[in-house]
Structures are given as structure tokens and as C-alpha cells.
């Protein structure tokens, strides 16, 4: 398992389940600080044909984080036949508001809010 974390957030890539789980509060200072997470996600895309991002426990994401996720979704879109699923929570308002934009970037993306 690959893990990136600090006192506010955790991102874990569980290779055996083709799953990346985000939790906590992500408000890093710009795209460059998101680079390790982007690298982890790119690695996951290169290792599998389908991947799920579980964001249910991600309480907060700043706009640089939204840019980071968009960048990742676009790279997944560019990989032929790649299946991407995003799991969110309908009890977390930012997820209800903003995750649909990712689906607009990649219409084949499966978005589930529960």
C-alpha cells in the first residue's frame, strides 16, 4: 500500500483493490504541493485498467485540489478503455456541488454519491 499523509489528510493507494482512498482536509498551497498525490494517482492509472477513488471521508478540498483531481481525471480519460469510478458522500455538501464537474470532463466516469 502507498500512503501519503500529514496531520490533516490521508491518501492511500490500495493496489490489490485498485482503490485510492482520500480522507480529512486537503488544502495544500498550490499545484506543486499536490505533486506527490498526482504521482500516486498516475501510478495507479498505469498499473490497472480500472480504478476507484473513494472521497467519502474527504471533508474539504480547496480549488488547487479540485485542479489536481481534474488533472488526474483528464489523464485517465486519455488512457484508452480506462474505467474510473468516484465514490462520494451526499452528506458532504462540497462533494454534491463539485464532483459532477469531474464527470463532465470524463463522461464515462461513474460517479456515485451515497
Amino acid at each position: 500500500m502507498n500512503l501519503i499523509e500529514d496531520e490533516n489528510y490521508k491518501v492511500s493507494y490500495q493496489q490489490e483493490d485498485a482503490l485510492v482512498v482520500f480522507s480529512g482536509t486537503l488544502r495544500l498551497g498550490g499545484m506543486s504541493e499536490y505533486a506527490p498525490i498526482v504521482e500516486c494517482l498516475q501510478k495507479a492509472v498505469s498499473e490497472t485498467g480500472s480504478l476507484t477513488l473513494n472521497l467519502k471521508d474527504l471533508d474539504f478540498l480547496n480549488s488547487s485540489g479540485i485542479a489536481m483531481l481534474s488533472k488526474f481525471v483528464i489523464s485517465a480519460r486519455n488512457k484508452e478503455d480506462f474505467e474510473l469510478s468516484i465514490l462520494g458522500s451526499n452528506e458532504t455538501p462540497w462533494q454534491e456541488k463539485s464532483l459532477k464537474n469531474l464527470q463532465r470532463l470524463m463522461p464515462s466516469l461513474t460517479l456515485r454519491l451515497e
Partner: peptide, 17 residues
């Protein structure tokens, strides 16, 4: 949507907020 697409090409997320 244009800025989201552009974010894939650069390290800037300026204006997205």
C-alpha cells in the same frame, strides 16, 4: 470547464476558486 482542462496542461489553478 476550460480552466479545468487547462489545469491538466499546467501547474496553475489560477482563477478556479
Amino acid at each position: 470547464m476550460k480552466k479545468l482542462e487547462e489545469s491538466a496542461m499546467s501547474d496553475s489553478s489560477s482563477g478556479l476558486g
